[in-house]
Amino acid sequence: MTPDPVLSYSLLSHVITIRGVASSPTLPDRLDALLGSHIESRRHDRQHNGAILTLRREGDVWRLVDPDDGVPDTPLHTEEQAARFLEWLAYSVAVRHAELPLTLHSGAVVRNGVAVLLPNVSGAGKTTLTLALAARGWLPLTDDVCPLVECDGELVAIGCRRCCHLSEASLAILQAEGIALEGPVAGLSDFYRPQDWAEPAPVRGIVIPRYIAGSPTLFTPITQAECLGQLTGMTFAQDTIPAHERRRNAARLAAKASGFTLTYSALDEALDIFETLEARIVDSSLTEASRIPAIIHSNTSA
C-alpha cells in the first residue's frame, strides 16, 4: 500500500504535518505559498514536537479528521476554503504548542534596531497601521502573531511572516501610501505579505492602536500597569507555558517599554506620531530607579 503523502511545515519552531491533501490539484501549492516551502517529509507526531492535521474527502467536501476540542468541524467545499482553514488551523496549533516564553496578539514594527508592539484585538486597525508604517521606515515583523524569545536576559520580538488579511479598503489605503506588497498569496484575494520584513529586535515601545472613524488623533502615555493589563489580554494560550508564567513574562516586557494608546482615524496623523516615537521612548533600564517614587522605597524598606 502506498503511504499517504504528507506535507510538513515548520511554524514557530513547531512542525505541522498535513495529510490527505497531496492528491488535490492546488492545495499543496497553496499551502506552500501560505506556510512556507514544506520541509523534508518525515514522520512527525506529538511526541516529536509536531502535530498532524488530516483532511478526508467525503463526497464533494473535505473534513478534518479527529478535530481537537474547539476546532470547528466545518465542511470545506472548495480548495480555497480548505486552504484558508488549514492556514488558520496550522498557525493556531503552532502557537498553542510553541515553546516560547510569550506569544502576543500584536503587530510589531522595527526601526533602528528598536521594536514597537501594536497589541489589540482583531478589527482595531493593527494590520493597516503596521504595514503603512513602512512608509516612515518602520518595517513590519508581524501584523498579528508576535512571538518573543529570550535573548541576553530580555524578551526580543522575532515576528512571524504569516500572511496579512487585508480588506479592499485597507489595500487601497496601503497602495496610496506606496507600500509594496506581495500577493494575493495562494490565489486568496485578501492574503498579502509585505515585501520587506524587519529583523528581530528588543521591545522598547508598546502602542495600543484603536481606529475609530471620525476620531481625532489621540496619543496618550499609559502606566506600565495599564500596559501590562492590555498585554495580559493579548497573550495567546500556549500549552507549554503556564498562564501565570506568560503573565510574568508580559510584566517583564511592560517594565522595559514605554506604553501609549493611539486612537485615530486619519492614518497620516497616526504615522506622524511614529516619526517622533523613538525620542519619546524612555529606556526604562536606564531610568528605572529614578522613576520609582520615593514613597515606594520607604514603604518597601519599612
Binding site: 506600565q224 500597569a225 495580559t232 522613576r291 517614587p293
Partner: peptide
C-alpha cells in the same frame, strides 16, 4: 500582584481572568 518599576501595579484575578491596573 505585578508591581512595576514605575510604581504602578496590576492585580490579576485568576478566577475572573481579568486585571485591574492601579496607579502608584
Amino acid at each position: 500582584t505585578h508591581i512595576m518599576p514605575d510604581g504602578t501595579c496590576l492585580l490579576f484575578d485568576v478566577v475572573g481572568n481579568e486585571g485591574r491596573a492601579l496607579n502608584a
